[in-house]
Amino acid sequence: MSFINNLINGISLGSVYAIIALGYTMVYGIAKMLNFAHGDIIMVGAYICFFVCSGAGLSPILGILAAVLVCTVLGIVIEQLAYKPLRQVTSLAVLITAIGVSYFLQNAAQLLWTSNPRIFPAIFGNGGVQLGGDLTIPYKTLVTIGACVIIMVALILFTGKTRTGKAMRACSEDKDAAQLMGININSTISLTFAIGSALAAIAGVLLCAAYPKLIPTTGSMPGIKAFTAAVFGGIGSIPGAFLGGILLGVIEIFSSAYLSTELANAIVFLVLIVILLVKPTGLLGKKISEKV
């Protein structure tokens, strides 16, 4: 029984990583930048939801909507102010700017909301679905896993079937050619940031529903791990981010349950290294041959 419990916990944590990783992978695919501020947008989303639900006492659905809205706007504003002027320069310069944005969000959160931990409310209730014996799946776990699957399918359909989604893929493959086909690069990139930030907000709420302690640095470690998950699955690939996220969550929970709690993080990263050595572009990443 404990094995199944651990598996479910792992998939649940993995789903949160997967949602964050999906945002990472979309932004990376199109803007070719590692958006280090992504983890902090998660934190902002969680705080917004916390204040709407716990502070104002409104319904959780309003809380999630508010978080998504605020984070989407925040994502677009950050993109316009900090990243857009740097479209043409080296990715390293954009990386440092993203780090600056990450510092900014963390410290702004510290000033606005102090570093005292807030206890996130149980917005999905405390009950669960009884599955015979002593096995109960909490509602929050079901919601998390369900949300992750829905988001992944929606993203695959969106990028595969819709005009905007196809424009997005075109931009990530070849910006110049896409522009010649009449695609507005700037608005496509802004849209990608908006989607990524909305996903971060949802991930923030789900993360804090499972791990209720909320502080201004809540988002950093899950952000790094989700980034790892995105690379794990092959960065730029949507199913890859999903697979990478789930695997990472399961490995983390299993290694802390069966091997050592202290070493769980190290084991996660060790598995990542081994996978990348065997498959240097991640599990589902495309092998790009180099032109001479």
């Binding site: 202290e262 993080n265 990263f269 990348l276």
Partner: peptide
């Protein structure tokens, strides 16, 4: 192992090693 990889994959593996050393 790290220097066999390229670009962002290399970066993420150095990050992973940094975390492993810390742990």
């Amino acid at each position: 192992p790290v220097l066999r990889l390229q670009g962002d994959y290399l970066a993420i593996v150095t990050l992973a090693f940094g975390e492993i050393i810390k742990t």
